[in-house]
Each structure stands twice: as C-alpha cells, then as structure tokens.
C-alpha cells in the first residue's frame, strides 16, 4: 500500500530536482608509494602502483520519500558509494548534488546542514556506538551540539525519538553493551533520527541481526519513513530484503552500476546477465531443492578487473566487443537502465 502511492509520488517528483543526485562519481583508492618504494623505484625496481576503482563513474538519484536499494556482492563498491553519499568518504571525481546544490561548493555552514540531513545506520550496531557513552548522551550529543531543537525541548525531543524507535527512554543511563543487538540498532537509528535527517543510508543495517529482529527493524524503517517522509539508500547484499523494502534498485558489479530500475521492473525483467544470474541464485522459501544454475567462476579481484565489461569472463553471452569496450548505461525501458552490449545488437 505504501509502495503504490510511493511510485506515483516518485514519478510526480521527477519533474523537480531529486533530493540527492550522484553525478558521475568515481572513488579510487591508491596506495601511495612510501619512501622505501620510491627509493626502490629509483634503483630500477618496477613501480607497483595499486589503484582500486572502488566506485567507477556511478550516477543515480534518490527522490524524496524514495527507498533505493543498492545491491551487489562483496567488493562491488556498494559500501563505498554508501559512505560517499553519507559524507563520510569523498569522491575522487564527480559531484554530489543535494537539492540541486553541489555539496563540495557551498559554505561550511551550508555543508554542515547538508551533512546532518543525510545520516547513516551501520552494519555492526555495537561497533557504531561509543562504548563509553551512555545511550542518552549518544543519541542527544549531536542534536544538542547543532541545536536541532531549543535546549528546553531537548529532553522531550530525545524521549520522543527513542520511543519512536522502540527504546525505553528510562534506559538512557545504560551503556551500549547492556543492550541486545536489535536494541542497539534501534539506538543507532534514534541517534540518526535525533538530528532530523531527510535521507538515511543503511549500510547492511539488518545483516547482523537475527531473522525475527530483522523484521522488527525493517518495519521500523518503514514506519519512520511514513512519519518523517524519509528517503533511504538501502545498501545490502540481501536481495530478498531489498526487494521487499525498495522502490528502486541499483545493481553494482566491481565498482560499476550495471543496472537500475524500479523494483517491480527489475525483478520481473532483469536485463543485465549479471542481474539475471544474481537474482537466480537467491534462495527463497518457495524454491526447494532446485538445482542452481550457478554463475561460473569467482568475483575477480578489484585490483585487476577484467577489460571491457567487467562481467565478461563469467557471462554466458560474452561477445568480442565485451572484452574491449565498456558498455554504457542505456535506457532499456522507461526508467530502466542497463549496461550491456547485448542491448545494442537489436
């Protein structure tokens, strides 16, 4: 029910600027040669510059109240992209537009405001909470520092946020280790919510939780979206969860976006061979004892990605051109983009 009204809303919003736009973002990690390496290079040793394109020329947008799922396997760069969106990491190239403004070219005051509008929920709830902070302080610290609400209303504000996240406000004096995993994640969500964000990046936010707790947290995310008109970037390897929660899905492979589209579209008609294979491997309660058509081979090392289309060594439909040229992301249906040379064959 939420989802239907959501799709319409998102389409209506298309005319306006999206809440957040990722514009040709690239993130490279480079191991700079240290003194010894430089010396060795001087003496004739081969220079071993290791560059990883964690994110390679990625573009997509998130609209108000939209849930975008970002899926892919380990090493595909989804977490890095999530961190860039959350402002914890910076892109090597490309722009991030918040409400149409380039976040790299605004005043520091403005940048701080943008930063607060995008919050992040992390995979390991215990690690994401300072072990020496009582949870009341953990949740209120930033709200207080940035004066999100007047000091007189702070206590009520924090209590309201905690209650909304299902945390008993009378436990504010406890330390994170006294809570269960699910409770800790709720505290992390309350901390993010306390600064009134508009977009929440969830980086594998339910991956470390038990199944029954996972359902509680996913429901909480949905409730909060209704309450606060939140948008989510839901980074996850769990395709079942992403399918359930997302309006739109972005699929990454080895640093590149290979396909994106509305959830219904993408799951009904996956275009890219990688997406097709990936969706075919997801276990579900309905498929029992089916023999998988497993994708051959392993994910190549991001240090040495294959030429052309990164997927070609594992692709059942690989052609000559796949080894040579990177396929551009092209619209294959309305709002459905895919990066595959097969689409050019006509």
């Amino acid at each position: 029910m939420i989802s239907n009204s959501q799709t319409q809303l998102a389409t209506a919003d298309d005319q306006q600027a999206p809440l957040l736009e990722i514009d040709h973002v690239t993130r490279r990690f480079e191991r700079k040669p240290d003194f010894a390496a430089k010396l060795a290079a001087r003496l004739g040793a081969p220079i071993n510059r290791r560059t990883v394109h964690a994110v390679d020329d990625a573009s997509f947008a998130i609209h108000r109240r939209e849930v975008v799922g970002l899926v892919g396997e380990s090493g595909c760069g989804k977490s890095t992209l999530g961190r860039i969106v959350a402002g914890i990491d910076n892109p090597t190239e490309g722009r991030i537009l918040y409400n149409g403004d380039d976040v790299a070219h605004v005043s520091s005051e403005e940048a701080r405001r943008f930063q607060l509008k995008i919050q992040m929920i992390f995979q390991d709830p215990l690690d994401s909470l300072n072990p020496r902070y009582r949870i009341g302080k953990a949740v209120s610290e930033a709200a207080r520092y940035h004066k999100v609400v007047p000091e007189a209303e702070m206590t009520a504000h924090i209590e309201k946020v905690l209650l909304q996240c299902g945390v008993d406000p009378t436990t504010q004096n406890r330390f994170p280790h006294q809570f269960s995993g699910g409770q800790r994640q709720r505290i992390g969500i309350a901390r993010a919510l306390a600064v009134r964000p508009e977009l929440v990046v969830c980086d594998e936010a339910v991956a470390s939780l038990d199944v029954s707790i996972q359902a509680q947290i996913i429901n909480l995310f949905m409730d909060l979206r209704d309450e606060y008109d939140l948008a989510y970037l839901f980074v996850s390897h769990d395709i079942g969860v992403v399918r359930h929660i997302s309006d739109r899905v972005v699929v990454m492979y080895l640093g590149r976006i290979v396909e994106q589209g509305t959830t219904a579209d993408l799951f009904a008609k996956p275009n890219h061979p990688y997406t097709q294979a990936l969706l075919g491997q997801v276990p579900s309660l309905k498929r029992r004892h089916s023999s998988f058509h497993t994708i051959k081979g392993e994910i190549p090392s991001p240090l040495k990605p294959p030429s052309g289309c990164h997927f070609h060594p594992r692709c059942p439909h690989a052609m000559d051109i796949c080894k040579q040229a990177r396929p551009p992301l092209k619209e294959v249906a309305s709002g459905h983009m895919s990066a595959c040379h097969l689409n050019d064959k006509g």
């Binding site: 989802s3 399918r243 359930h244 309660l285 309905k286």
Partner: peptide, 12 residues
C-alpha cells in the same frame, strides 16, 4: 517474518 516476493512494501 521473512520478506516474501508477494507483498513488497507491506509490513513484515
């Protein structure tokens, strides 16, 4: 409590 394909977006 496992998300099913049937009802995306519904409460779990």
């Amino acid at each position: 409590s496992i998300p099913s394909d049937n009802e995306p977006g519904a409460r779990l």
